[in-house]
Design a protein around this nucleic acid. Sequence first.
DNA 1: CACATATATTCAGTACACGTACTATTTGTC
DNA 2: GACAAATAGTACGTGTACTGAATATATGTG
Lengths: 160, 160
Amino acid sequence: MSNQKSDSGQMQDFRSLPGHLIRRLHQASVALFAEECASLDLTPVQYAILFAIGESPKIDATRLSEQVFFDRSTLGAVLDRLEKKALVVRSASATDRRVKVLTLTAKGKQLVKRASPAVLRVQERLMEPLTAGEREQMQQLLSRLAEVHRGRETGPKLDD
Amino acid sequence: MSNQKSDSGQMQDFRSLPGHLIRRLHQASVALFAEECASLDLTPVQYAILFAIGESPKIDATRLSEQVFFDRSTLGAVLDRLEKKALVVRSASATDRRVKVLTLTAKGKQLVKRASPAVLRVQERLMEPLTAGEREQMQQLLSRLAEVHRGRETGPKLDD
DNA sequence: CACATATATTCAGTACACGTACTATTTGTC
DNA sequence: GACAAATAGTACGTGTACTGAATATATGTG
């Protein structure tokens, strides 16, 4: 007796835990994105940032980080890369010398537009195993959970 | 006319896309884990690895990477850290001199056991916004998606 | 047994992701 | 208008995550 495990009472297998499944699904999602956008040299994170800047030109990095739900530190590094690829321009704000304002270049705008169908294909492939009704359910549950946990993603910076 | 966007026809807002929602939920999940396990100095990834080694002592890194669904490169770095924290021992295999075999130390076993309730609390808090039925649904959908996309997580290494 | 092939691990390089701390401003207050 | 508190951006340190290459060893074939 007292073999190896099974004496603790609640040794749940991590494989069935939501956290683990979500991590796996996230990995699959990123992998699909990489596959579909291979020729565009674009990551999911970079797409979201480009899209959000396109939506709100002259946005500053802090506001942007709230829009896309990243931490400001991470965002800085991503913007460096986007700037190096000439997709984004960072220019000084006229009113506040602390802030640097973000705008898409023509190349950046074009890339968002070109990537758009590939991004949709990723979502379709990701959810393909589900029926239409299940997809709807999933979407709904994900939205609600994300909304409730909003602000937990990137520190205690709630608001808006 | 031809204002700024709205002329492409399928400019889907990334915020409602499953991929984006899954990323956010993953972030929330990791944040909750960090919160619950702060005193244990343990990440979700490290917990899964420790658990899996506890389950299959003397497992090698490649087999382990299939169990926990990480890439072998990533796993190496994580094992370095676990070894440095004296939770895991890497020893040479007797039969195959290429492989290094993994075992939990007493400290490692103890930590898995101590972390277990915190890990369950993370799952509860993560899914708390949902009703029991919805939680069931979610679990089911996540499992199916993860299963179907299995192998996409860490390259084209199917099998088992 | 020599050799091509396959496998186990590691390493280098790139890209998220977060906390903390530091600098430059700005703003609110007296 | 000097000064404390808040804010924008950046830098650093740690920890995933994956690709591709390099190294070591093992295995199958002739």
